[in-house]
């Protein structure tokens, strides 16, 4: 059985032939499209390292069968920056030491982008911690991550206000 699926990945239309329905979005990104920024941690939906945005929502790509997502719009860590200009969440992670070894970082950053889009956390660190609990960091950079998310959220809100003005 062979399936052909079309995805928009970081703004670019990609058509992929799948010989096997078992391929997850994570494996498709890493093994077929050579986008290895998205990390395979536990591969069981427990660590969040594989977080990407699918149709604007953060999900665990390790549990998403690619064949079920034909037509989806996907954003990965590789699609976040604009040229050399980092996305405000990326810049805030650097400014606040939001990582140490870096393995969980693409997932943390994509999760933070999703969290800010969801608009539920506000400026409450407790809500940011709760909203980021699906992303584990074994180096324990949580304090910096929380600060980075709060700052990025403020910057993005300011940018939005300027756009409206």
């Amino acid at each position: 059985m062979s399936f052909s699926i079309t995805l928009t990945v970081n703004g670019e239309m990609r058509t992929v032939a799948l010989e096997d329905p078992r391929v997850t979005l994570l494996d498709l990104l890493r093994e077929r499209l050579e986008l290895t920024g998205t990390k395979k941690g536990c591969d069981r939906g427990q660590c969040g390292a594989c977080t990407i945005l699918v149709d604007g929502r953060r999900v665990n790509s390790c549990l998403a069968l690619a064949v079920s997502h034909d037509g989806a719009d996907i954003l990965t860590i590789e699609g976040l920056a604009t040229g050399e200009a980092l996305h405000p969440v990326q810049a805030a992670f650097i400014a606040h030491d939001g990582f140490q070894c870096g393995f969980c970082t693409p997932g943390q950053i994509m999760s933070a982008v999703g969290l800010i889009r969801e608009g539920q956390a506000g400026d409450d660190p407790e809500r940011v911690r709760e909203g980021m609990s699906g992303n584990l960091c074994r180096c324990g950079a949580y304090a910096g991550i929380t600060q980075a998310v709060l700052e990025a959220q403020t910057r993005l809100a300011e940018a939005d206000r300027k756009l409206v003005a």
Partner: peptide, 9 residues
């Protein structure tokens, strides 16, 4: 329940 990523799906 679960995490934000899982609840989205």
């Amino acid at each position: 329940g679960a995490s934000a990523q899982l609840r989205n799906a």
